[in-house]
Simulated assay, not measured.
Amino acid sequence: MGSLAPLSEEPISGEDGLSKRNYSFRSWLRKQLFQRKSNLKVLLSVMGCPLSPVSILPKQPRGVASSAEYIIQQFRATSGCGKMESTAVKSMYATGRVAMTEKHGPGAASSSSLGYGQEGSFVVWQMSPGMWLVDLKVSGFQIAAGSDGRVAWRRTPWLGAHAAKGGVRPLRRALQGLDPVTIAAVFSSAQHIGDKQIDEEDCFVLRLEAHASKLSEQSDSTVDVIEHVMFGCFSERSGLLVHLEDSQLMRIQSPGSHAMYWKTAISSWMKDYAPADGMMVARSGRSVVNLERFGVAGNKTLSLSTIMEENWRIDDVEFNVPGLTADFFIPPEEIKDLS
Score class of each variant (00 low, 15 high):
106 P>S: 10
294 F>W: 08
38 S>Y: 09
163 A>W: 01
47 M>Q: 13
49 C>R: 06
286 R>G: 00
11 P>D: 01
163 A>G: 13
48 G>M: 03
324 L>S: 08
295 G>R: 01
184 A>W: 01
232 G>E: 13
166 G>D: 14
2 G>P: 10
121 S>D: 12
182 T>M: 11
320 N>W: 06
315 D>G: 11
76 R>P: 00
6 P>G: 09
325 T>K: 06
270 M>C: 11
84 M>A: 15
59 K>R: 14
222 T>E: 11
327 D>H: 14
297 A>I: 12
152 A>I: 10
72 I>E: 08
263 K>R: 14
105 G>K: 11
98 V>K: 02
252 I>H: 03
68 A>K: 03
114 L>P: 02
335 I>Q: 08
2 G>M: 15
196 K>D: 11
53 P>L: 03
336 K>L: 06
69 E>I: 04
100 M>I: 12
50 P>M: 08
240 L>V: 08
186 V>C: 04
139 S>N: 15
67 S>C: 00
50 P>V: 12
123 V>I: 12
234 F>A: 10
128 S>G: 02
326 A>W: 02
235 S>H: 07
150 R>V: 12
151 V>E: 12
77 A>T: 04
102 E>F: 04
13 S>N: 05
318 E>K: 13
331 P>R: 01
43 L>P: 00
302 L>S: 04
230 M>H: 06
59 K>E: 15
42 V>G: 06
58 P>Q: 00
248 Q>I: 13
166 G>Q: 13
54 V>L: 09
193 I>R: 07
294 F>V: 02
244 L>M: 13
23 Y>Q: 05
175 L>S: 09
187 F>D: 06
9 E>S: 08
216 S>H: 13
279 M>S: 08
311 N>A: 11
316 D>G: 01
218 Q>H: 09
268 S>P: 07
33 L>G: 08
56 I>G: 04
196 K>G: 02
316 D>C: 03
21 R>G: 01
268 S>D: 09
262 W>F: 12
297 A>Y: 01
110 S>A: 09
3 S>M: 09
271 K>I: 01
137 K>H: 13
111 S>F: 07
304 L>H: 10
130 G>P: 00
39 N>A: 07
287 S>P: 07
18 L>V: 12
28 W>H: 06
311 N>V: 11
79 S>R: 07
73 Q>H: 06
312 W>R: 05
254 S>P: 02
191 Q>S: 15
338 L>S: 01
20 K>H: 04
9 E>N: 14
339 S>D: 06
56 I>K: 10
172 R>L: 15
90 K>H: 14
